[in-house]
Amino acid sequence: MTAPRPQVDEPTDPDVDLHMPAQRRQSWREQLPIVAAVALGGGIGTAARYGASLLWPVTVGDFPWTTLCVNAVGCAVIGVFMVVISDVWAAHRLVRPFFGTGVLGGFTTFSTYAVDIQRLVDEGEARSGLAYLAVTLVAAIAAVWLAVTVTRRVLAWRQG
């Protein structure tokens, strides 16, 4: 049996934790700036992803390299961003929802990844679809880990 989570009112985080009574009580007016920041950032991130697809188009039947690279790059940027706002910079409360959830959430794409896998399978390229599924997961996790590791080392080197 696990111990119950303590009921502590901590400063409001942009991510809603319904275990925190203060966050359950937040009004729509208090949430509106966060929703607006995510929406604005999401539009920017989605436009950037679309721009990447125009710069590096993938024709029917080809391996979806653009989506794979966009997702890996987005994950690397998320790794750097989280280290910077967690360890270095006391960011404004809307920076994380705007850039982390909005821009990077709009830039990276699980839906296109899933559609690409389905398309490959439907075109008789099941092996490519499975490879794409696995390579994307490995690339995304490796990108976050590498970005976090390198960012922390660079920051320690600059401070030391």
Rank of each mutant, 00 (worst) to 15 (best):
31 Q>P: 02
91 A>K: 01
70 V>T: 09
54 L>N: 13
78 I>Q: 04
49 R>N: 11
142 A>Y: 04
106 G>Y: 07
131 A>M: 09
61 G>F: 00
45 G>D: 07
160 G>Q: 04
81 F>P: 14
66 T>F: 06
149 T>Q: 05
140 A>R: 04
90 A>T: 02
6 P>C: 10
95 V>R: 02
32 L>A: 15
130 L>P: 00
139 A>H: 04
8 V>N: 13
106 G>W: 07
50 Y>C: 04
25 R>P: 12
117 I>C: 08
147 A>R: 01
58 V>F: 00
150 V>H: 14
28 W>L: 13
38 V>C: 09
109 T>Y: 12
19 H>K: 14
133 L>N: 04
156 A>D: 06
155 L>C: 03
104 L>S: 14
154 V>R: 04
48 A>W: 11
130 L>S: 05
117 I>N: 05
92 H>G: 01
8 V>T: 15
20 M>Q: 15
10 E>M: 13
39 A>L: 10
100 G>C: 04
143 A>G: 07
121 V>M: 08
36 A>P: 02
56 W>V: 07
55 L>E: 11
112 T>Y: 07
60 V>T: 14
148 V>N: 09
56 W>H: 15
148 V>P: 06
51 G>C: 12
114 A>Q: 11
23 Q>Y: 09
145 W>P: 01
159 Q>R: 12
23 Q>T: 10
143 A>I: 00
98 F>A: 05
23 Q>N: 14
93 R>A: 02
92 H>M: 00
56 W>S: 11
57 P>C: 10
138 V>S: 03
99 F>H: 09
157 W>I: 03
106 G>I: 06
128 S>Y: 04
90 A>I: 00
146 L>P: 03
81 F>E: 09
155 L>G: 02
104 L>E: 11
60 V>E: 09
25 R>M: 13
121 V>C: 05
120 L>Q: 11
113 Y>S: 06
